[in-house]
Structures are given as C-alpha cells and as structure tokens.
C-alpha cells in the first residue's frame, strides 16, 4: 500500500472526526476497520491529525488488545478462554485449533487465511466451550469438532 493510498482512505475516516484528542481510540478503531490492521503510516497521519506525539499513538495502539499492528488473516478465529469455557475444557480446543492451523494464539497463518486469537469472554457461557469464526459462534466445542468447524467456515468463505 502506498502512502497516497493510506492518505486517501484516511481522509474519509478523518471526515467523521474533529481532531480532538479524545477521538484517538474511535479513530484507531475505524482505521483498523478499513485496513484490517494499523499501518505505521496511518498511525503517523492520525498523530498529525490529532496534534499529538506519534509515540503516544503507538503507546495507545499497543495498550489495547483490539489493535493489531500486522495484517490479520481473512478469517478471525477466536477461542473463548473465559472461566466457564476453561472449566469445560477450552484449553484442549485451543490446543487442537493451534495444531490444525499450525499457528499459536495471536498469530496469523502463513497464507493469511486465518488469524487465531483468544478472547476473555464472548458472553455465551452457557454454550461453553465456545469459539467464533468471524461473526459465527460455535458452542459446546470439542477437539473433534474443530476440524469440522474449520471445514464449515472455509466452505462458507
């Protein structure tokens, strides 16, 4: 992506904002929604737009778990590691998912198809252990269902 591309996309994002410091987090959220991550060039532009130091933007971007500094995969797999899921065996689901995708939690597969993440709680505790692929939720997971769920999602995509 060239600098001009970044600027074009950002111009549109900036048009919804006033340039106040308190807008930093919503701005980063919207930027990430456009780029699927936060490119360094975009963070620099945001710092300029909000009249704040670049290091501050970087500090905020790295503080919050939502923000990613590297491009995400096409599909986001989130395995819930909430308490309810933990006591019902989510660590095994996560281990199986890591094995199947060949990446650790927080990483993206080499072909950029999947990003595997853990999430503190998706709030569907009664369906524990749960996981999501993009906006689809899968409940009462077992290690055996992992391959099934992945196959299901690649068909859907």
């Amino acid at each position: 992506m060239t600098k001009a591309d970044v600027q074009d996309k950002l111009k549109e994002v900036f048009s919804h904002f006033h340039g106040e410091q308190q807008e930093l987090i919503p701005l980063l959220q919207e930027t990430q929604a456009r780029f699927r991550y936060l490119p360094a060039a975009a963070m620099r532009e945001i710092a300029r737009f909000l009249h704040m130091p670049e290091a501050t933007v970087y500090g905020v971007s790295t503080f919050y778990a939502q923000f990613k500094l590297t491009p995400l995969g096409k599909r986001i797999v989130r395995v819930c590691r909430g308490t309810a899921c933990h006591v019902r065996g989510s660590s095994k689901v996560l281990a199986e998912m890591e094995k199947q995708l060949g990446v650790k939690a927080g990483e993206t597969t080499e072909d950029r198809e999947y990003t595997l993440e853990t999430v503190a709680c998706i709030g569907a505790c009664a369906l524990a252990p749960t996981m999501t692929i993009d906006s689809e939720t899968y409940g009462k997971m077992t290690t055996k269902k992992v391959a099934e769920v992945l196959g299901d999602s690649s068909k859907a995509g």
């Binding site: 620099r44 670049e54 290091a55 933007v57 970087y58």
Partner: peptide, 28 residues
C-alpha cells in the same frame, strides 16, 4: 513537551519506546 518516547504495550511487556520502536536517532 515533545513526547518522543512513551510507554508502549502493557503489563509485564510494558516498555519505554519510540513510535514503532524505532532507534532514537530516527525520531524527532
């Protein structure tokens, strides 16, 4: 009032860093 360095990351991984963890010489 320059803010070349700030805290980045959080918790046990927190550190003092410049934008993008660049060497100081490449910053303002």
């Amino acid at each position: 009032c320059i803010g070349t360095i700030d805290m980045s990351y959080r918790g046990y991984a927190m550190k003092v860093s410049t934008f993008g963890d660049l060497p100081l010489i490449e910053t303002d």
